[in-house]
Design a protein around this nucleic acid. Structure first.
Lengths: 382, 382
DNA sequence: TGGTTTCATGTAATCGTTTTCACACCGAAT
DNA sequence: ATTCGGTGTGAAAACGATTACATGAAACCA
């Protein structure tokens, strides 16, 4: 009980304070906190006790200065908005915490320059990086910018050699949706596109085109911007067309929501007059009227996997084999396309409560299934 | 052009490499990168050039070891889900970046213990902390755990002395909504509660009760859990009641969504038979059928303000005056309560496009307005 | 011309850890 | 009695920056 509390002048107790107080050297303190070497039972206890008493905890900066480990992961994301990103971050956060890592997020990067600036400022503060690049050019630039920094790229538009990548099965998901619509008898399937330079949007469009061509149907594409309002406008536009489409496939659920709004307003019945489909399976999709048929992507899983891959890359930097993985999407059949009605309207599909059911679902993971069987087991009905 | 590139043994160029290469001392390098003192134009350029050539950037750990500044802010949040949190984070991220700070998020803390563990691991890695505590007890514990760390608490249930706080005007928002419903002639106004220990939920309930009592009406409360499904169940429950409520006020929009689903399924017309209202103004609220009357809270603003307050607290640690601020909410009148119809159905309210309009809105900020005028200017119509 | 400022730069201490190496001690084997 | 292999511990050198202080040259003034 000295007059001066046993702390450094800066307030926080340091390793030296604990050493002095416990009557050992700083090396021993370090050993206790790192389990790095044998310390006698007695000393260990004494150290732990005094540390607790002084409120000591190793200084992260000092530690990472010498170990070259920050135990932090960086996440560089484009415009952060809405459920998708929130879920990606959630998945990353959970996985990072599970492994004792911190997550530094930096989002809302409109262009490559901003992203690179953020990357530079993160260098030395993170052990690895997860990045979602807005446009196809950036990945290469990023590598040049931070050589040697383990990276996982989320849905890079173009193939990438210097980093692991994780992509969403956008093309396959869109193809599956179009096949589903065609199977239900729809012939004039319109597509509401996403933003021009968005990679997901481009891939979904590609899937739409591929499947449409395969089915021998005519494409009908309208611009959109991934927002409800743009879907609303797109639908109004489509309704003006001479042979009205009998199905509208929006590149994401937000736009599909707008589409439904426009159809409702125009007195067009869904799915009787026009079928509607979306992409993403956001939470509210199941609660629209009618509940929306869509393609589920699990953003939180994307985040989770990204962290796992990144930690592997950090642990084994020598291993230059890059992994390029694709996260499956799932067709989620609800009422907006009329499939459930066709399957028999008797099965109480009415209850949106089913939206929370996580019933039998299985993924189509983008590999080509040679057998063309109609596959109800690859679908969720709710 | 030496055989050995002028880099330290660990790969990354250090301040010493640049100094050697540029023919100056490390102090000068530091000065160039910090604008901390005058450096001749010529040397400055030479340093910048060689730094760029070697790909040098100051090591964050070393820097924060000596400056005691990490230029990072921590964000401790409870279960991270949905639009609300995503927007809070977005607001924080933007504000932090604006000031050159990094944002370390750690979410999904179910209980106080987890939160405290996260806090400990963040100590020394952040210059300040923004925390949203799940239950009322934690703030005090947090202070004990990290003495001297600047903190901003988001919506702490109880008054807090040792930190700045930022709260949402939940009580006032709920009161305003009930007054609005009563003014429209509704008398049996039911409330779908949020989770038992959630602070927002409790405050909204309190506002509901206060306003109801003030209007001389009977309360009617049902449990809920802030999820669509729980709103759905609550509405089914309410429909079974003997005198059916003529208005259902859900404690958040997700539950209101479920309420609408249940009413639609039961063939109850909204707003003609029953009015429905929510809280939050999530994006999809404007796209429900009918568009949802709700109370807008701007989570991104909450995040933004939290960062600003925190940075102030970091800059002036001596200033012990704590600020306790309340972020206003806004009544957003759409069709689910029938107000627009009352106001005259002629004004093209039909177009959900209006959902994106950011028209004349003004806040009721929780202060008591002694004059009881009906205040259409405090509302948004869309 | 001598003295004082001012400016640009260098020297060296410092931040709080981790980690290598050395060393003292001890019981057992030679 | 000596040698030996463990064990527990301490001394000291990093890690890569910032910054107080020192220094020398040039500029200014009387």
């Amino acid at each position: 009980m000295s007059a001066h509390p046993p702390r450094g002048p800066r307030g926080q107790a340091t390793i030296r304070d604990v050493a002095r107080e416990a009557g050992v050297s700083i090396a021993t303190i370090s050993r206790v906190f790192n389990q790095s070497a044998r310390v006698s039972e007695e000393t260990r206890h004494r150290v732990r006790d005094t540390a607790a008493r002084l409120g000591y905890w190793p200084n992260g900066a000092a530690r990472s200065l010498i170990t070259r480990r920050t135990h932090a992961l960086g996440a560089l994301l484009p415009e952060l908005h809405g459920e998708f990103f929130s879920e990606v971050i959630r998945g990353m956060d959970l996985a990072a915490r599970r492994h004792g890592f911190h997550l530094i997020v930096s989002s809302s990067h409109a262009d490559a320059a901003e992203l690179l600036a953020a990357l530079r400022s993160m260098r030395g503060r993170v052990d690895g990086l997860i990045a979602m690049t807005p446009d196809p050019g950036t990945p290469a630039a990023m590598d040049a910018f931070a050589p040697g920094l383990p990276m996982v790229l989320l849905n890079p538009g173009s193939p990438v050699r210097h980093a692991d990548t994780l992509a969403i099965a956008n093309v396959e998901g869109a193809r599956a949706m179009v096949r589903h619509l065609a199977r239900l008898g729809h012939r004039r399937i319109a597509f509401v596109c996403g933003p021009a330079h968005n990679i997901d949007a481009a891939q979904r469009l590609r899937g739409y085109r591929q499947a449409l061509r395969a089915a021998g149907l005519e494409p009908r594409e309208t611009p959109g911007a991934f927002t409800e309002a743009s879907g609303y406008e797109a639908a109004k536009e489509l309704l003006r067309a001479a042979p009205r489409p009998d199905a509208i496939f929006a590149a994401n659920d937000a736009m599909a929501t707008g589409v439904l709004g426009a159809l409702r307003e125009a007195g067009v019945r869904v799915p009787d007059d026009v079928a509607v489909a979306g992409f993403d399976d956001i939470v509210s999709a199941a609660w629209l009227d009618p509940p929306l048929t869509t393609v589920r992507v699990e953003p939180s899983r994307l985040g989770d996997l990204a962290v796992e891959r990144l930690l592997e890359a950090i642990a084994a930097p020598a291993d230059l084999r890059r992994r390029h993985e694709v996260v499956a999407t799932t067709l989620v059949v609800r009422r907006s396309c009329g499939a459930a009605a066709r399957a028999g309207a008797t099965d109480g599909v009415g209850a949106p409560a089913g939206a929370t059911a996580d019933g039998n679902r299985s993924a189509h993971d983008g590999r080509i299934h040679p057998r063309r069987r109609a596959a109800p087991r690859t679908e969720v009905r709710s």
